[in-house]
Computed example of a mutant assay.
Amino acid sequence: MGTPLGNFIRAKRDTVQPGPLGLPERQRRRSPGLRRLDLANRADVSVEYLARIEQGRDRNPSPAVVNALADALCLNASERNHLRYLAKITSDSCAVDIRPVPPSRRVRAPVLRTLELLEPGVAIVSNRLGDVLAHTSGYQAVTGGTGLLDADRPNLNHYLFTDPRARTFFADWDDVADEQTFDLWQAPSLENLEWLTAGLTPVAGDEFTRRLNRDTMPRRGVLRLNHPGGHQLRLLREILELPGDSQQLVVFLPEDEATAEALNRLPRRPLGRLRSIS
């Protein structure tokens, strides 16, 4: 049985073409991309060892081997970080005694004060599981009438895969679903990831599980929203990591003048002092 690390390496190997790497093109290949022999030679490891990693029979490659594979596959910075993360969660030390537990929902007071300074802009504090932990009045105005914030504990993944309104609200629903599901691999811990997927998989179905097992980096472009008020919004996302909290401060900025004008016309309700959504 494969592992997230092995699946990702195999998927990337299939996408790398030998020609640009100075390797001969071979006819009658059973699969596209690099042969296992090609990658093993470029990473200076044996074919047998690479096969064990890809097939999940070796779960503890050294950091040197992981970095060598990243070089051999010509991974970009985001892909390298993802490869290192998969190596961490695949290791035997992380694969035992997984007990599903919910992540902490506490947002530190200084982070909440920072969010207040962004009013009346559009911003949230979230985590990699898609929990909306705190938000500005601007974010409430953008999502008003869509159902995204209706739950006591709003979660973007639950909304995307279980609320039909999400497919209308997000103009590029498939791309957003790809992004959110991919980000689950950056969950604060395996226990947190298991906690979310255990509850979401039965109700989200194949659209969710198929993406969760996909090993392709998603495209991240302009976020296009169809507001219930008839506005078409184009937003850029600036993501500020809060690594000590396993959270993110996400600021949404208008991509064009039409979006800026539409945001100014959206009705806003004062939130009072910001607090975590408990």
Rank of each mutant, 00 (worst) to 15 (best):
G6S: 05
L156F: 05
Y85H: 13
P188L: 05
Q27G: 13
P18A: 13
R28S: 14
H231M: 03
S104L: 04
L249A: 09
R113A: 14
I98W: 00
D58K: 00
M217A: 15
V176C: 02
R35P: 10
Q186R: 10
N226K: 10
R165I: 06
A187F: 04
D131E: 13
L160G: 00
T146A: 07
E261M: 07
A123C: 04
N81E: 15
C94V: 07
D163L: 02
P61R: 01
G205F: 13
N226V: 10
R220S: 12
R30A: 15
P267I: 08
E207L: 13
V16S: 12
H82L: 10
L190S: 13
L83T: 04
C94L: 09
L240N: 06
L118S: 09
G56E: 00
S46H: 01
S93W: 00
A87Q: 05
R237D: 14
G205I: 13
I9K: 11
I239N: 11
G144N: 13
R275N: 08
R220K: 15
N264H: 13
V65N: 06
P24W: 11
S189C: 11
W173E: 03
A260K: 06
S31H: 08
I124H: 01
V132H: 07
R106Q: 12
L133N: 09
R105K: 07
A64Q: 14
M1F: 07
V125K: 04
A51P: 00
N192E: 04
C94Q: 14
E255P: 00
V176I: 14
R57T: 06
D175T: 15
V142G: 00
F8R: 02
S104E: 11
R30G: 14
C94R: 09
L266T: 09
V101Q: 08
V125F: 08
P102R: 00
D206K: 11
P18Y: 08
F8Y: 15
R28C: 10
R273V: 10
L253F: 04
L240R: 03
P100Y: 01
T114G: 15
T181V: 15
L236H: 14
Q27D: 14
A87E: 04
D183K: 10
H231T: 05
T181K: 05
R35N: 12
D71F: 04
W185M: 14
A70T: 04
S93Y: 01
V16M: 14
G145D: 05
V132L: 14
S104I: 07
G230D: 03
F8M: 05
E191C: 14
G22E: 11
D172F: 08
F182V: 08
L274I: 11
S246M: 09
Q17V: 11
G145S: 05
G138S: 09
R108Y: 03
T162W: 06
G205P: 04
G121T: 11
T143H: 01
A187H: 06
R128K: 10
N76L: 08
R113H: 08
R165Y: 07
V122W: 01
